[in-house]
Design a binder for these strands. Sequence first.
DNA 1: TGAACCTCCTTGAGAGTTCAACTATTCCGA
DNA 2: TCGGAATAGTTGAACTCTCAAGGAGGTTCA
Lengths: 166, 166
Amino acid sequence: MNSTSGGGEIDRGGEAPANEPRWLTHDEQRAWRAYLDANRLLVEAIDQELQRDAGIPHTYYEILVRLSEAPGRRLRMSELAEAATASRSRMSHAVARLEVMGWVRRDECPTDRRGQVAALTDEGFAALEAAAPAHVDCVRRSLFDQLTPDQVDALREISEAVVRHL
Amino acid sequence: MNSTSGGGEIDRGGEAPANEPRWLTHDEQRAWRAYLDANRLLVEAIDQELQRDAGIPHTYYEILVRLSEAPGRRLRMSELAEAATASRSRMSHAVARLEVMGWVRRDECPTDRRGQVAALTDEGFAALEAAAPAHVDCVRRSLFDQLTPDQVDALREISEAVVRHL
DNA sequence: TGAACCTCCTTGAGAGTTCAACTATTCCGA
DNA sequence: TCGGAATAGTTGAACTCTCAAGGAGGTTCA
């Protein structure tokens, strides 16, 4: 048994093919599997909490946060997409839904007639304010309460290394 | 601007409500946002590679790996779900699709007539073998090549702490 | 001016996940 | 052994994401 869930080799019963790719080491496999599990559980916990308390997935919550931080609480669709690390298509669908909820409004862009400006409504801001405490609490309990300050730093450095490369 | 994309507070302009929740510290916010971005990019890269090369998402790849590791390359649906950190519903849908592809077979369980046993077919095993090298390479390039051995250990410890709690 | 090209955003289809039933079977206590 | 509760797994609907396609508006350059 030396297959890795996603990162590792398959059990070939001792056979060693020519031109063997660089399989993961034992330590890397352990890290990879732990990471996959942690990630799944973390995302699941956070999504569930937000879905229950605010009726939106975490990705939508992030959109509201980015808008709340922008000057005038408004952002071009493409800028919003970039700020949230999302595709334009995803942003279109997401904003369409948030618009139906009354949390975001779509205005024409005054300087570029192709453009649209997404604006956080007062209702949207209120919803964000209402959802934030429970959400932060969930993030804290699920993640940061389990880590030492050094581990928080390490997590950031590891993440930044990955972002830098991709 | 001190909102956190999912972990942080909202800009209230200096107002300090009673019973303030434990917001994230500056360092925690940085770590959280970096983690979210890294995670999104990583999952996206890995899913794209597998979708292109094997025609399945990473979650399905993991199912094949778990089956390949099981004795006789077969596992009860519920055991498979647990091994892959997935819900039973998800496993039902996923195995249904893998069955259509001819990579997994579903047999009756001899000891429990409610049960089903998912078995990796020879075609499924071959597909896994074919997909593994490029996949491992993608994981390696996206993640482990960017990390020091100490960071790999740290990632595992952080992940295990999260899993332990959730 | 006009043609080619690029950018902004949307749309619809297809796929995977979740959630809430629902069926069938097994377990367990009176 | 009977009946209620728990367990195994499936199903369909709703939702989100991706991907490919497309419309509309800008930009460039001859």
